[in-house]
């Protein structure tokens, strides 16, 4: 069965106390290295953003199906897969950001969680709690809460769609057998 290519969900916009986007959130802020021994997906969620000031309670606030909205260079730093998998653990539906660390992007694509680059997502008037609809193939974003279109994201590449449809990179490999 094909997975949906239009996703809808409540957004959580990662900004600081003054309402400014937080750029350069590194993998130690997302999933601190003191938890690196954890390999079980369902144990990871509770530590998400445990080292990001003001967002320590993210795991309690996040709901299944939420869409994460982040700023520039999200996921800079180490190659740890847990910094992606902690969001899958919380059933976060997808991640939309202005830009991402190269290895982070690679890890997210391999794990099958839709990750989209929307270079101006933080400029748009999008608030935590709004519901958006996002088309993975065209990149169109629509704010359902106020009936307004937002500036588009870069569409998913074919590779990203292939892996997303298969599940993970490894599931994709299985299908190629």
């Amino acid at each position: 069965m094909k997975k949906p290519t239009t996703l809808e969900g409540r957004v959580i916009v990662i900004k600081d106390q003054n309402g400014k986007p937080i750029d350069d959130i590194d993998t130690d802020m997302i999933f601190h290295n003191k938890h690196l021994h954890i390999t079980e997906l369902n144990e990871m969620g509770q530590y998400t953003f445990g080292n990001l000031q003001g967002w320590e309670s993210f795991p309690e606030k996040a709901k299944s199906g939420d869409i994460l909205i982040v700023g520039k260079n999200f996921g800079a730093g180490s190659s740890r897969q847990q910094a992606v998998d902690c969001f899958r653990s919380l059933s976060i539906q997808m991640i939309v950001g202005e830009s991402f660390g190269a290895i982070y992007k690679r890890n997210a694509i391999n794990s099958g969680i839709p990750l989209m680059i929307a270079p101006e997502i933080m400029i748009d008037d999008l608030k935590t709690g709004d519901n958006i609809k996002i088309n993975l193939i065209t990149g169109e974003i629509f704010n359902v809460s106020n009936n307004r279109s937002l500036k588009s994201a870069i569409p998913l590449s074919k590779v990203q769609l292939d892996i997303y449809q298969a599940g993970t990179l490894f599931d994709y490999g299985r299908k190629k057998e």
Partner: peptide, 12 residues
């Protein structure tokens, strides 16, 4: 590359 990427390259 990381070990998942390399495992995938071995396989495919």
């Amino acid at each position: 590359m990381g070990d998942q990427d390399i495992a995938f390259a071995f396989k495919t």
